[in-house]
Structures are given as structure tokens and as C-alpha cells.
């Protein structure tokens, strides 16, 4: 899985993932969020627009990221969930300051 990071003017890190989020790629996602938190970016959006598949291993990695950002005083949100997988989950976008 490939990923990239950009930052909003407000300092929110946007982590864009590309590929299936499963037991193969989940460790890299955990590491990516941990690196952001270690660098002081505890407000993170994970963009799933280019993630066609997400399983419980991937969900576990997102929940792990959620907990690590919150422990650092921030939060983790997901964006564009289901945009490629065709699932019924609604898209969510970051609305924080």
C-alpha cells in the first residue's frame, strides 16, 4: 500500500492511502499514524478514497491510530469511506477547526 501526507493550513495532517487495507498493509498504516503523532501532528484525517477494500485488520489499525492521536490530545477522522468499495457507509469529511 502506498500513502502520502499533506497538511491543511490549520495543521491537520491528511494521510491518503492507496490500495487494499488488510493484514498486509495494516502495520504500515499504524506506523504512518505513529510517525505523524511523534512529529507532533495529532490531528489526522485518513483519506480512504483510493482504498477499495477494508477488513477487520485495517479497521484495527484505524482504531489504533484513533487511540494514539487522542492520547496525544488530537483526534483521527476518516474521509471518503466507501467511495470505491461501493459500500453503504456515508462519506465523512473533517469538520474540525
Amino acid at each position: 500500500m502506498e500513502h502520502s501526507v499533506t497538511y491543511t493550513d490549520g495543521g491537520v495532517a491528511i494521510l491518503r492511502l492507496q490500495g487494499n487495507l488488510n493484514m498486509v498493509s495494516a502495520p504500515a498504516v499504524r506506523e504512518a499514524v505513529a510517525s505523524l503523532v511523534a512529529e507532533g501532528s495529532s490531528r489526522v484525517v485518513v483519506d480512504l478514497a483510493d482504498v477499495p477494500f477494508l477488513d477487520s485488520s485495517g479497521l484495527g489499525a484505524l482504531i489504533g491510530g484513533l487511540k494514539s492521536t487522542r492520547q496525544a490530545g488530537g483526534d483521527l477522522r476518516i474521509a471518503s469511506a466507501g467511495s470505491k468499495s461501493g459500500s453503504s457507509s456515508s462519506s465523512r469529511t473533517w469538520s474540525g477547526s
Partner: peptide
């Protein structure tokens, strides 16, 4: 809901 594993078999 904040568990990081254990959803595989229920799914």
C-alpha cells in the same frame, strides 16, 4: 468498539 482485533469471526 475500541478493540483493535476480534472482529474477524463475527464478520
Amino acid at each position: 468498539e475500541l478493540a483493535e482485533s476480534g472482529r474477524g469471526l463475527p464478520l
